[in-house]
Structures are given as C-alpha cells and as structure tokens.
Nucleic acid binder design. Structure first.
Length: 671
RNA sequence: GCUCCCGUAGCUCAGUUGGAUAGAGCAACAGCCUUCUAAGCUGUGGGCCGCACGUUCGAGUCGUGCCGGGGGCACCA
C-alpha cells in the first residue's frame, strides 16, 4: 500500500463521514504534511472548511474542534492508523502505525517502476519541445526548453500516460533564409562547396551548427547597412517556400544538418524525440487549406471587406491585449492570400489533436545508439513497413517560452472553435520564462556592453547577435570540471569509466540547474552558479544516492542480501521499539519523506511544474545525508534496528534513483 | 494606452488549490574525517514577505489601490 493510497482511503472516509454526520458533500479534501513529525504524518484542516459550510447552509455555528472529534473517531477505525489527534484550532493529525507501514514497504515489489506507460490503451498525449530554428547551434535558453519538456514528458509517463515527443522544425522560415543568404551572398558558396566545408569542419573538430552560429550573426550585422541584402532574403524565402529549386535544396541541406547537430546536442543530455514534424510538409501537403476550409464552414473566421484589415481572413478574438474590438481580430490569411504563422500553427495543432483529417508521410531520420528511432515527416509516400501512428493526442502540451503566450492563446481558442468537444483544455501551453545573461556573463563571453546595458539586471540572449552560451560549450566545461574532480578521487579508474562518470555528473548539474527554478522565473545565467557541483545541485542528489548504494555494495560484499538483512517483519514489537526509541522519529520521518515520491510526481504533473520534483529530490538527498551522518548502519549492533535502518536507506535510494531518472539524471556507480 | 507576470535574508530562489514557529543554496564566521565516500554534516549571524487598506477563525498566498522591474499587444516567425 503506497502513501498516496492510504491518503486516499482517509480522504474517502472523511467524505463519507461528512455526508453522514453533516449532510455535506466535500468535493475536495485538502491534506498537508505537518511541519514536524511529532505532529503526525498527514494532517487534514478539513474541520475549518466544514464549520464554514455548516454555518453558511444552516446558520448553525459549530466549533471546528468538535467537528474534528467526530471525524477523528471514524478515522481511528483503520488498523494502519496508530492514533489521531485534534490539534490547534481543529487540525486532524493522523499518525500511522510505523511497524506495519515499514513491513508493507519491504514486501512491496523490488523497484518502484515510474515509467508505466507501456499499456497500449493508456491515454495518449503529445509534448512538443525544443523546436529550435534549424539555422544555428542551440544555446542555454533552448536547453531550458528541452530539459523542461523532456522532464515533463518523463513525469507524464510516470503517471501512466502514453507520450509522443515532437520537436517542430521550422525549416522554411526567415531564420533559415538568413543563413542561406550568408552562404550564398556573403560567402558565394554553392551547395557542393557547403558540403565540402561541412566535412572540413568535422575534420577540424568543430561543427556545422557552430559555423552557422557565427555566419547568422555576420548576416545580422550586414543587414544593418545593406538594404539590398534584405531584398535578397525575401527572394530566398520565397524560393524556399516554393520548393523544387536549387535554393530550396541548399536550404534543406543547411536546415537538416543543423537539426542533426541539435539532436546530437540534446542526446548528450538524454533528451530524445519520437518525431520531427517539419513546416515544409505543412506547406506542401496544404494542411492550412484543410484547416481553412473547416474554419470557413464553421464560421470561425470571416473575410474583412473594409477597414485596415480589408482583404484578410480574420478570427475574431476576445482579448485583453488589444485596445479596441477590431485590433483584437487576428489575421490568419493576408490580403495577398498567404497564411500567417498563427494560421499554420492552428493547422499543426489540429493535426496533433487528430482533428485535421489529414496526415503527413514519414521516414526514419536518425537511429540512436540503442536502436531507438526518431522519425521525420515527408511530403511523399515512402515505403516503411512499420510506420508508427503519430499525432492523435488527447491532450497536447506545447513547451514554448512565455513571450508567445498571446499567440498560443489565439491557437488554443481557434482550435477549440473548430472542435468544441475537444475544447480549450486539450491545448496546454507550458510557458516558461527565458534564460538571460547577467551583464557580467555577457562580458565574460566577450561582448562589449553599452552603458545602458550595464545597468540592466539582465540581458536577453540573441541568436541574431550571436549573443548566448552555446549548449555544447557549457556541457564541455561541466564535463571538464567533473573529470578533474573524478581524476583526483579515483585515479585508479579506467579512463573511459572516468569520462562516463564525468558525463553523468555534467548532465546532472545542467539539468538540475535548469529545473530548480519554477517556470515563471527568469533565469539570469551566472557561470559560477551553473558550473557548481556543491550545494543545491544535481551532484548533491547523485552523491547521496551513490553513498546509499555503497552501503548495499558493502552489504553484499559481506555475503548478506537485502532480504536477509531486513527480515524483521516478524518482529513488530521490536520494530515499534526502534521507532519509539532514541532517534526513532528521525528514522521514521526519513521513511515518510522517501514515500512521498509518487504524490510529488502526481503534483508536478497536475501543476505542470517539474520544479516541484526537483525540490523534492533535493530535500530527499539532503535528508539522507543527515540520516547517513547520524546513523551508522552497517556497524549497528541491534539486529532489528539495523534492519530498520537498512530498510529505510533502501527506500530512500530507490526513491532517489527514480526521482533522478524522472529528471533524466543517472546515478553514477561511484564519484 | 491596454494586458499578463514578478517584488520574500547581503545575493539567487522555494514556500503544498489560504493553515501550525516563513525555508533552502550561495556568500561570511566557527566547528566535524581512525568508523557505510567530507562533492558531505553541524552551529552562528542575517526578514516592516515592495507599501496601504480590505476579506476571515487564520493572509507571504485571495481582493482593491499605489510604487518598482520585466514581457506581450504586426498583413514577423
């Protein structure tokens, strides 16, 4: 029986007692964790709520404590409840039977499997994240998106959902056109020459996306003085959108190579995708036409005949963002007949939800080391025997930074207008704030700041300016620092093993750093903080798990196994003595904390907030470090106490490992 | 102009659909390795939770106003 299940049983009893004794239907029974273990294991402040409701409905004034007493007796009937106390003004504090709880914990299945999304009938959801414009290397801001999306995706799987991860590729936009302008007009290169350059870059130990990073910035500078070049961009953009020409072929090469580089970068952080849907297919397969037709039929959009939007198809939009009614209308088709970004996004969103009535074609794009495949969309049918079914999400999560909240709102409302049965709740914008640079960090990167910039609390990163911390650079630095540390601690270890551990630590550091902030906090990037392996870091969480594991390694070296060492279930009296003895409350609260993983994951999923899981993991690791310090486990003489300590430590390491894995962080064999 | 978000310790941030004595990391200072890994642990100092009213048994959390910071409001993507 898990903690979550016990809580639910208690909640249900409170509901039924409230119905019977007060004729009140409680739709939500709040529970909370008491601040100290002496105050119980779970508390229900429900008596306050009931007193208020009774007064409102009958006018009768009841004392919350008196109400709590009535609920108390009904909760004491469970054998897993040791006692119930009414505390303060009417808190209902529940104390579990400790020896029974830990015995149940031991007999439970060996490893808590968080990824349970194997059931084919489970609800399917789509998560879109990363979606970096394929014209340059990914920077730390893109990594925040990807880490948030990937962690959220893992959290959803842990709650039993089937999840499809999509990385949208805008391969026909102005951003790609800009780099093509650079190759064609600044560097006078043909496609073959670009391919040659590409292979030379690999030989020189750098990468195509890094080259594009610099070229993109160079084009940006050139635009400031060269109007002619801007006209060239318009021509190139047109050619790319039209397709079937040399420029489009060149642009496709540039975009595809950047996609490959970005996929490789993300793979370093254990971030993977199922599908790469491309804008070129949305254009060439005429997804918009299909969406347009439906929206016209349903009267969701209208053709303007007068005013400033004359000749455009617009969607009326109730908004707080515009100044008057007409400015709130959102243009989906321009007066020249072309579709806007928002229009394309509505069509794409409809496809994700399975309500467009059209599909892409697909082919495998890339195979990961363990043979897992990423697919990409194509405009023509290809022969692939085992093409999975993509799209058709019950719910669609879009991980997109909060600057696009307005557009996402338009998309959500547009899709809901076409499909009221799906409604607005099927589209969820997982918004997050940007990663910015502190003025000091920007200068550290070699940028010269204006006096105004120096006064700002942070500076926005900009691909166009080439201002940003490249993801691979940061990972490289983290790996180098970690490797130096591993070298000094375990010089005897094989080189590849040391490198592997350094890599796991680097991933842990970066992912945790990006996850510990809540989504609506602007991360002001600071090198010292991001490169740290001490304090509130992924490293501390990994270290804690490694230390716990080493206890069990020593245990098995002594020819004991966990089952033998924790065989105390037959002795509940002595087990209870351990919990009531010196340090018993600490041991118990450690076990309770480790038991809260499941409800924490559920909470993170319900609130769309991975930071909740990150904070929990840190607190668990921190708690274990103290537990480890205060209780010497293996030398413990009392066999029952030793068994209890081992059992608690085992619960912690399982919970910690599962929590870290849900954040995409591995536990190294040693560190 | 309209609108959304933020304001908590010197700094960076948490704070469980309102709940018990507001927490953590960093920075500073003082301690702890003969014992399961010191990337750790313990202790000290540090707070008109931006300000003012209001709602109620109870407000860092909800409402209104104000002050300060940031974002968004294109026939761009």
């Amino acid at each position: 029986m898990t903690l979550t299940e016990l809580h639910e049983i208690l909640r249900e009893r409170i509901r039924s007692t409230a119905r019977g004794a007060f004729e009140i239907d409680l739709d939500y029974v709040a529970s909370e964790t008491p601040p100290k273990t002496e105050l119980g294991d779970v508390a229900f402040p429900v008596a306050f709520e009931l007193a208020k409701t009774i007064k409102k409905e009958t006018g009768e004034k009841r004392n919350p404590r008196e109400i709590a007493e009535i609920l108390k007796s009904s909760l004491e009937e469970f054998d897993f409840v040791e006692k119930v106390e009414v505390a303060g003004a009417g808190y209902l504090n529940i104390y579990f039977n400790r020896s029974q709880f830990i015995a149940a914990r031991i007999s439970a299945e060996p490893l808590p499997q968080l990824e349970r999304s194997t059931r084919s009938d489970a609800e399917k959801v789509c998560v879109e994240h990363t979606s970096v414009n394929p014209n340059k290397a990914a920077h730390i801001g893109h990594v925040r998106n990807s880490v948030l999306g990937d962690t959220f995706q893992r959290i959803l799987k842990a709650t039993g959902k089937r999840v499809e991860v999509q990385n949208y590729i805008d391969n026909t936009g102005v951003q790609v056109a800009d780099v093509v302008v650079g190759f064609v007009y600044l560097e006078n290169k043909t496609l073959d020459e670009i391919k040659l350059l590409d292979s030379e870059l690999s030989a020189a130990g750098t990468t195509f996306d890094y080259y594009c990073w610099d070229l993109y910035a160079k084009v940006g500078v050139e635009y400031q003085t060269n109007e002619e070049l801007k006209e060239k961009r318009a021509e190139i953009l047109h050619l790319i959108e039209a397709g079937n020409n040399e420029t489009a072929e060149l642009a496709d090469y540039v975009a595809t190579r950047n996609v490959q580089c970005i996929v490789d970068t993300m793979e370093r952080l254990s971030i993977r995708y199922d599908l790469l849907p491309r804008e070129s297919e949305i254009l060439h397969l005429h997804f918009w036409d299909k969406a347009f037709e439906q929206m016209k039929q349903l009267g969701v959009i209208r053709l303007e005949n007068e005013g400033k939007n004359s000749g455009c198809w617009v969607m009326p939009f109730e908004s707080h963002s515009g100044t008057d009614e007409h400015e709130a209308d959102k243009i989906l088709v321009r007066s020249n007949g072309t579709v806007t970004y928002t229009g394309k996004d509505i069509a794409y969103q409809m496809w994700k939800l399975g309500i467009l009535g059209m599909d892409f074609f697909y082919r495998p794009f890339h195979t990961y080391a363990d043979a897992a495949e990423v697919w990409i969309t194509t405009a023509v049918r290809t022969e692939n025997a085992a093409t999975p079914e993509f799209g058709h999400g019950e719910t669609v999560y879009n991980v997109i930074d909060s600057r696009q909240s307005y557009t996402q709102d338009v998309v959500r409302k547009g899709v809901a207008a076409v499909s009221p049965e799906k409604g607005e709740s099927a589209s969820i914008h997982l918004a997050y704030e940007m990663v910015a640079l502190s003025p000091a960090a920007a200068e550290e990167l070699g940028f010269v700041l204006s006096d105004d910039d120096k006064k700002r609390s942070f500076i926005e990163m900009s691909g166009r300016k080439g201002l940003g911390v490249k993801a691979d650079d940061l990972i490289d630095r983290l790996e180098a620092i970690a490797l130096a540390e591993v070298e000094s601690r375990h010089p005897e270890e094989a080189a590849d093993q040391k490198a592997a551990i350094a890599h796991q630590l680097a991933v842990g550091a970066l992912r945790y750093f990006l996850l510990k902030f809540t989504r609506n906090t602007v991360i002001v990037f600071d090198f010292k903080e991001a490169l740290s392996f001490e304090g509130e870091t992924g490293c501390l969480c990994q270290y804690s798990a490694v230390r716990a594991n080493s206890i069990f390694r020593k245990l098995s070296e002594g020819d004991e196994n966990v089952a033998e060492a924790t065989a105390f279930a037959a002795n509940p009296e002595k087990t209870a003595d351990v919990f009531s003895g010196e340090g018993g409350d600490d041991i118990w609260s450690m076990l309770m904390l480790a038991s809260r993983l499941e409800e924490t994951v559920a909470q993170a999923a319900a609130q769309n907030e991975p930071a909740i899981l990150a904070k929990f993991t840190f607190n668990l690791a921190k708690g274990f470090n103290l537990f480890y310090h205060n209780h010497k486990i293996l030398p413990e003489q009392d066999p029952v106490k030793r068994a209890v300590l081992l059992s608690v430590a085992d619960s912690v390491r399982r919970s910690l490992t599962a929590a870290l894995n849900t954040m995409g962080i591995e536990v190294p064999p040693k560190m």
